[in-house]
Write a protein that binds this DNA or RNA. Sequence first.
DNA 1: GACCGTTTGTGAACTCGTGCACAAAGCGGT
DNA 2: ACCGCTTTGTGCACGAGTTCACAAACGGTC
Lengths: 230, 230
Amino acid sequence: MSVAVSGDGLPRQHARRTSISEATVARLPVYLRVLAGFADGGIATVSSEQLAVAAGVGPAKLRKDLSHLGSYGTRGVGYDVDYLIYQISRVLGLTQHYSVVIVGVGNLGHALAGYAGFGTRGFRVAALVDADPARVGETIAGLEVQHVDELETIVKEHEVSIGVIATPASAAQDVCDRLVACGVTSVLNFAPVVLNVPEQVDVRKVDLSIELQILAFHEQRKSLSAQAAR
Amino acid sequence: MSVAVSGDGLPRQHARRTSISEATVARLPVYLRVLAGFADGGIATVSSEQLAVAAGVGPAKLRKDLSHLGSYGTRGVGYDVDYLIYQISRVLGLTQHYSVVIVGVGNLGHALAGYAGFGTRGFRVAALVDADPARVGETIAGLEVQHVDELETIVKEHEVSIGVIATPASAAQDVCDRLVACGVTSVLNFAPVVLNVPEQVDVRKVDLSIELQILAFHEQRKSLSAQAAR
DNA sequence: GACCGTTTGTGAACTCGTGCACAAAGCGGT
DNA sequence: ACCGCTTTGTGCACGAGTTCACAAACGGTC
């Protein structure tokens, strides 16, 4: 596998040596979690078959995914669990540390602040902020809630790279703009709006309402086909 | 279990005659929300261009998506907002009512119970259950928390069709099995595990940890390419 | 060292989703 | 009734992602 030779002098911002597709990147964290489970169970080696079953994908897809980040398996044997964990962590960038700021400390913000997933694997919640003065000063999960006016200061001081938006829909775009303005380039959005951001900023959205509606569609499809079969 | 394992090359594709692709279905709720905003603003007609911008997709993709559910636009004019809302709602199955049970009333369960998105558009939270006896009896968002042992009774009585799993990872598969056993065919999973379910059951997962790790990957990619440009 | 069963890594075919470009279709003005 | 402007719906080409199938590679055994 050769490293991409950039012959174009054009300063295109992405599509450089990505070579790892978005679909693969979305699955790597799953593999990582499954592997961590194997490691805890004292298993030193896994085959693509075992890993695939545990991760809920096909063995071929799994092997192709892993092949995109190098040849780290041993033919006839499988993959060394610890080594694979290290490699995936490295590719995902989890060997670095990322500071996260959570904006909006409503029901959801509370839950997020207490979520253990943030603490693990290189993520650290640097601050919690809210626009409601009544909430400022409250301590949640060992952090004191600060006012949203402090946002710029906080981002600069803690070198925040990831912003989590857990505000009402009406405030989300404004908060997002402010985050982007002070240099945040990754946003995780829980508000039910489509955020408008410059090209270099990555936004991932988590939207319960949408998930429910997708499930509703399939529910209807199933009940319709059951009816048709009658 | 019944999940395809080694050898059998049977593709577990659950689509029978879905003339609407999964990718399109995932976008329809977004269109619906944007359209609702237009309707609130008193706008009666929108072009694919306007809708596309507001929904964050390309105009061609939007038109193709809408064409999959019929020809509901008028050439030279655009789409009637109210009529399109009705048609998308119908296709998504939102004209029916769905009962939801939320399992696990920790931080996240609390937030979900209070989430307004459940109340709207045909979804009703029928019950909240938890395994912790200390939590049983507590009232959240107007609902009394019941013990998880009541799960089967609740599902039968309220004709629950959608189960939301907000338990710790260790309990998720067990809860899921019980939901499936009493007839639930759609599951929204917040626990960080890969659920094993029979073919006819749809599972959608929401996983904060995975989203963060995907963002981390892109953060790293951006910082690396910035370094290379130097 | 050669053989054997196992498992990886990957070319190749195939499916699915996206973007382009344009003809068909409607509306309003003359 | 015609013309010109606007916008939809869609055929087509392209690219991304998935699955298949198999040769190459490896450890263990004789």
